[in-house]
């Protein structure tokens, strides 16, 4: 259902929901939004739970590491007690997770190429920026693979052993040098990708074709109306 909808409409709805999550002060309503989106993704869109949870890991980590500060920070209003600190902490965590859920709902149901095309042709975003970002999305799995292979090679360079040697072997490859190599590789690859895109006519003088540009339809209007009604229902 969502995966067939216009990317820009979905983007606007995502912005609306993220704005609502930053303004609302009720963790229960945020949890309700998360539950609703989770059910929609798992039941209707058939997104594997594992994929959803994997995508949420950075948000959960951020929620965990940032919200506790509100619980332990000195309270400027001594009369409100420690309870207020924990409530603030819970609210921040709920906001972060709800933002993550909205982001995942958008990311998991949107084809990046469709989004790039819609941004270029309907939102006036430069082709160089849109396709450069798209190419960067390709690099992330390759970079992770490179990091894994580099670590394997580094481990292979340390003879197996016990004690200190085993520890050295375990941490081999987690070095500054590996980071520099990966960064250098990423820069080189980004440069080569930019060169390839230019050689394939990205900056051609003539206007680009309008091929497969997603268009907003009546269904997208219905989706937007539903989203607005949802926000109103959650607010009131």
């Amino acid at each position: 259902m969502l995966s067939r909808r216009d990317p820009l409409t979905k983007l606007a709805i995502a912005f609306l929901l993220v704005a609502w999550t930053t303004l609302t002060r009720d963790p229960a309503r945020l949890a309700g939004l998360c539950g609703l989106l989770g059910a929609l993704l798992i039941v209707v869109e058939r997104i594997p739970v594992r994929s959803l949870l994997r995508g949420l890991i950075p948000f959960l980590f951020f929620a965990l590491t940032s919200s506790w500060i509100y619980a332990v920070a000195p309270n400027p209003n001594p009369g409100s007690g420690a309870q207020a600190g924990w409530e603030a902490s819970g609210l921040v965590a709920a906001r972060i997770v709800a933002t993550g859920m909205v982001s995942m709902a958008f990311a998991l149901t949107t084809n990046p190429s469709d989004l790039a095309r819609a941004m270029v042709h309907r939102a006036g975003v430069s082709r160089r920026f849109a396709y450069g970002t798209l190419a960067a999305v390709q690099f992330l799995p390759a970079l992770a693979e490179d990091a894994r292979i580099a670590r394997l090679i580094a481990r292979g360079a340390v003879e197996p052993g016990r004690g200190w040697t085993a520890l050295r072997r375990a941490v081999a490859g987690l070095s500054f040098g590996t980071g520099v190599m990966l960064l250098a590789g990423a820069i080189r690859r980004a440069g080569a990708a930019a060169l390839a895109m230019e050689l394939r006519g990205l900056s051609a003088d003539r206007p680009a074709s309008a091929w497969k540009i997603p268009r907003a339809t009546l269904h997208d209007g219905v989706l937007a109306a539903c989203a607005i009604l949802l926000v109103l229902a959650l607010t009131v």
């Binding site: 190429s113 798209l134 990708a193 060169l195 390839a196 051609a204």
Partner: peptide
């Protein structure tokens, strides 16, 4: 048209049809 030595950097799109279409869109077909 140019095919670069580094094929990994040469491909820019996420699907096969988008990849083939990339240069064709740029040419204004």
């Amino acid at each position: 048209t140019t095919i670069l030595q580094d094929t990994d950097a040469h491909l820019v799109a996420l699907s096969v049809e988008d990849e083939i279409a990339f240069a064709l869109e740029n040419r204004g077909l």
